[in-house]
Amino acid sequence: MRRLSVPLALVLAASAVTVAGPGGTARAYSAPESYRSLRADAHPDWMAAVRGDASLAELSIPGTHDTLAVYGGVVTETQERRERGDGRGGGSLAFQLRAGVRAVDIRVRMVAGEDGRGRFSVHHGAVYQNANFDDVLRELGAFLREHPTETVLLHMHGECAGGIGGCQDADPCPECGTDHNHRRRQIFDSYAEAHRELFWQPSVTGAAPVPDLDEVRGKVVLVNWSGPHGGNYPDYGLAQLNYADWADEWGPQKNCYVQNSYRVDGISRINDKWEKVHAQLDRANRSADCRDPGAPNGDKLYVNWASGASLLAPPSVVAGGTPTATGVNGFLYECLTGRNNRCDTSSVRRTGVLMTDFPGHGLVDEIIRRNPARH
């Protein structure tokens, strides 16, 4: 999301009091099943019941946008904070995985580690999220060792675009004479090499085809790896999703497999964001490929970002709604459960990868139950 200046952020935080409860926790005005109500250990092994020969493109996968953005207040936070209290970062990620989330979105800043080598810390804008990429890989590895029937899809993004309210990368090797994009990829490659057993290698060594589930059980699949100013780095992730740049907040949808327009200019625009999510659900469930109408669609992976924000509508409001406006999560839950004629529910046979802020347990349940079961 676009970085906020400090004065404007303070104005927004003050205005958000009207939609916040005790301790700053935003209330849910949508169905509580849809918003901020993940349940511990609800779905630790749900992929065990899914056909192994099913392509990831056939699946319905719950995901979280800005997965570890759990510090910084109403402007910055996008997920429930569920840290363990042991001083190690990443507890909220571990909680989400056990609750059923299988697609995560990690935003990183370049820093120099204690050994002087380049490392990644996890940020949302200028706010450090009390976690490093080492914590992310530790939690992913621990979860997949304990639950080897599962896979996790990883979206990686270089967070530091600069500007007021943003972060600046701390180049760990200024004497190397390489630009930050090159250094960022070098650092990621060093992590991938050190954790070869964790990553599905085709996704970190070249643009990969969309795999079947059995190929990637127990592994992390890198979906895409993008820089701070947009644009996916070549030779990473899934090739099908990288034929064109993903949209930015100002522009139209450039890649029909990905809906990631996140600008919501106020509460009155939440419905507009829902319509974009709804349109992407429709694309995923058509018989024809959105890019090539003469080709089938069932083997194409769709990614749908339900998250959105602006100065006048922070993430919790866009997701959870207000007394006068249903949140995007509420719209989604109504659509998937057949309530209020929100959509043609019977036509939503798969959701694709659905990335949300503050998901609720019922929303996760509805996404998971659309997956092809073992016979």
Rank of each mutant, 00 (worst) to 15 (best):
F133I: 14
D299L: 01
G21L: 13
D245M: 12
N285I: 14
A208M: 11
N371I: 10
C173E: 09
T178W: 07
T64W: 03
V221W: 10
H278G: 00
N371G: 08
V108P: 03
G63M: 01
R339C: 01
Y243T: 11
L354S: 09
A161P: 07
V216Y: 05
V17R: 15
V348E: 08
I106M: 04
H65Y: 06
M156F: 07
S60N: 08
A313V: 02
I367R: 00
S30F: 03
S55I: 06
N132Y: 12
R81P: 02
K276E: 09
G21E: 14
R2V: 09
S347E: 10
T76L: 02
Y191Q: 07
C343Y: 01
V74L: 12
S347I: 06
L56H: 00
T67I: 10
C173G: 08
G218K: 04
N260V: 01
R138T: 11
Q79G: 08
A14T: 15
I61Q: 04
M355T: 06
G52L: 02
S261A: 12
P293Y: 08
A69P: 01
R339L: 13
V277S: 02
A13V: 01
D289E: 07
A247K: 11
E58T: 03
S310H: 03
L97Y: 11
S55T: 08
Q259A: 14
N304I: 11
G352Q: 00
R107P: 03
H155W: 15
L238R: 03
G294I: 03
C256H: 11
P315H: 11
W305I: 14
G125W: 10
N181L: 13
G72L: 08
G177C: 05
N130E: 14
D134A: 15
A14D: 12
A131N: 03
A192E: 04
N297Q: 14
D212E: 10
G90Y: 02
R84S: 08
A207F: 07
S15C: 04
G118C: 07
E249N: 14
P7R: 05
F358L: 11
S307C: 07
A48P: 11
V328P: 10
A31P: 15
R339Y: 00
V19P: 02
C343V: 03
R350H: 10
G113M: 09
G362I: 00
I270V: 13
R342C: 01
S261R: 14
G231K: 09
L241S: 13
L222F: 04
A313S: 14
M110H: 00
Y29P: 13
E114Y: 05
G227F: 05
A373F: 09
S37W: 02
P323C: 07
G231H: 12
G113F: 08
R369Y: 06
T76H: 01
Y191A: 09
